[in-house]
Design a binder for these strands. Structure first.
Length: 257
DNA sequence: ATGGTGGATGGTCCA
């Protein structure tokens, strides 16, 4: 079972990239962030023709998450149970067989100390509380998405320049570590120890060409799943296409009976 | 130097 995550920065613009990538990689699950589509506009037919089922939770212009799957989910959760109508669309979870797949688009935070920054920290805390309420670390849970946090020095191109900056501040790393300590394992780092492996590059200042990236898109699994994770990789090819997303797909494979 | 580019939108907001 291959599970993948990709922030597409508008599914409208990136649909052909996504369909091409699905046909090439054939994952069981693709978690998408920043669809930027209301639910009535979701391109269900294009995915059906490629052999995939869709669950989606979107809004106009911003945010929006979706899980594309080969199997039909037996349970679906859109947003946190205590979400207000006004909350942005950043959380979706499906159950397929014995496995729960959680897809998150963690808020960016904009600037350290800003109102959006505090919203980000509070959102991560709500996510941790959701996990405590609805799951056990002994269960088969995979959480993936755009976490908007780079965790370690080896996940950023210049740790000293990034110190204290948005996506790499101590408060963000501490919040995300607390989520990790609930019971997750970073499946990518099971298989790759080196620095210089990134999932996102700023559109500006030719960051991709200059290899100035961050690893902020993650696939974490609880131990029962992490123990059967046979490989994990970042597919940098879609970032080289015309009109790419600023993120590229990350994938992990699990050998589950 | 608060840049630089890209998406949604229709003057800015967000990343």
């Amino acid at each position: 079972m291959i599970v993948a995550t990709w922030n597409v920065n508008s599914l409208n613009v990136r649909l052909s990239h996504v369909i091409d990538w699905l046909q090439r990689c054939q994952p069981e699950i693709l978690c998408i962030q920043e669809t930027k589509l209301t639910d009535d506009k979701f391109p269900v037919d294009a995915f059906a023709q490629a052999g995939y089922h869709c669950e989606y939770f979107g809004e106009k212009a911003y945010n929006g998450v979706s899980i594309i799957s080969k199997g039909i989910p037996t349970a679906i959760q859109k947003g946190f149970p205590d979400d207000a109508q006004s909350d942005s669309k950043r959380f979706i979870e499906i159950t397929v067989g014995p496995i729960s797949i959680i897809n998150v688009y963690i808020p960016n935070g904009q600037e350290v100390g800003s109102e959006k920054f505090h919203y980000k920290l509070a959102w991560i805390e709500r996510l941790k509380n959701y996990l405590k309420m609805h799951h056990q670390p002994e269960d088969m849970v995979v959480i993936c998405g755009d976490f908007n946090v780079a965790v370690e020095d080896r996940d950023v191109y210049d740790p000293s320049a990034m110190a204290g900056q948005i996506l790499f501040s101590e408060a963000e790393k501490s919040a995300i570590q607390s989520l990790y300590d609930w019971g997750f394992i970073d499946t990518f780092r099971l298989h790759h120890k080196e620095s210089g492996l990134y999932s996102w590059w700023d559109y500006r200042a030719m960051a991709f060409r200059r290899k100035l990236g961050l690893r902020i898109d993650h696939i974490w699994a609880t131990r029962p799943l992490a123990s059967v994770c046979t490989r994990s990789w970042i597919d940098v090819e879609p970032r080289k296409l015309e009109k790419p997303s600023d993120h590229t797909p990350v994938a992990s494979e699990f050998k589950t009976g």
